[in-house]
Write a protein that binds this DNA or RNA. Structure first.
Lengths: 114, 114
DNA sequence: GATATACTTTACTCTATAGTAATGTGATCT
DNA sequence: AGATCACATTACTATAGAGTAAAGTATATC
């Protein structure tokens, strides 16, 4: 059990936290964020990389934008999106590790119970 | 921009990640997790601390259990819940910091624009 | 100015889930 | 056994949002 400094959180803070997590709760949005790890990309590029429909990608990007997970730069006909915050990288790293651990754990329990 | 080691993630991994985040996407569940930071607690205690209805608390605890965020121990009439994994602490810490930063940033921009 | 391009928004259907009340379940006590 | 207690589940309503198709908007090109 690590030493954890507990903060006092208001109802508003819990709401904000929830909305932040919700931004990362859909596979499509995770794919978009993941794709943007390489750096700034246009919507067309993101559509191609994720394999989603353009309207759907656009909608999810809007949600990520409102959650301030990504930022947008318009240039000519294009909209370029990029990860807004360094903390997003940390977050993804942590979650990826967690999922990786769980996947390998599931794999182990599967093979040992077979 | 930090050096970030990008993994290859499957569709299944994105789904798992999404479900993990979804577990943390509701204020009530965050309150429960937050409350459990102190250590193991019974449902009654959690009901009292969160101010929610028993049925609702119970349902959310079930979701957290299925997401393996918490674990359950039954003893007599009581069910005791506890944080399942150390990574939950790290995750909460990171997110709390992020929200804190954003709140203070909002506060600053509010007071400087007034 | 008409047309094409890149993206956004709207309108729609469908599914998931939050909150609540009522009921069910299993352990404990008398 | 019957009552009670702690919790879980079910049934219901209401709302959010995911995916899709169609229409809208703004910028560039001819």
């Amino acid at each position: 059990m690590p030493e954890f400094k507990k903060r006092d959180l208001s109802d508003e803070a819990f709401e904000m936290l929830g909305e932040q997590f919700k931004a990362f709760s859909e596979p499509m949005r995770l794919k978009l964020v993941y794709s943007l790890m390489d750096g700034e990309k246009s919507v067309s590029e993101l559509v191609e990389e994720t394999g989603g429909l353009q309207a759907n990608v656009s909608k999810h990007l809007r949600m990520l934008l409102e959650a301030k997970v990504v930022e947008r730069r318009k240039q000519g006909l294009n909209s370029f999106y990029a990860i807004a915050d360094e903390s997003v990288f940390k977050l993804c790293d942590l979650m990826c590790n967690s999922v990786e651990d769980r996947l390998t754990a599931d794999l182990k329990s599967f093979s040992s119970s077979a």
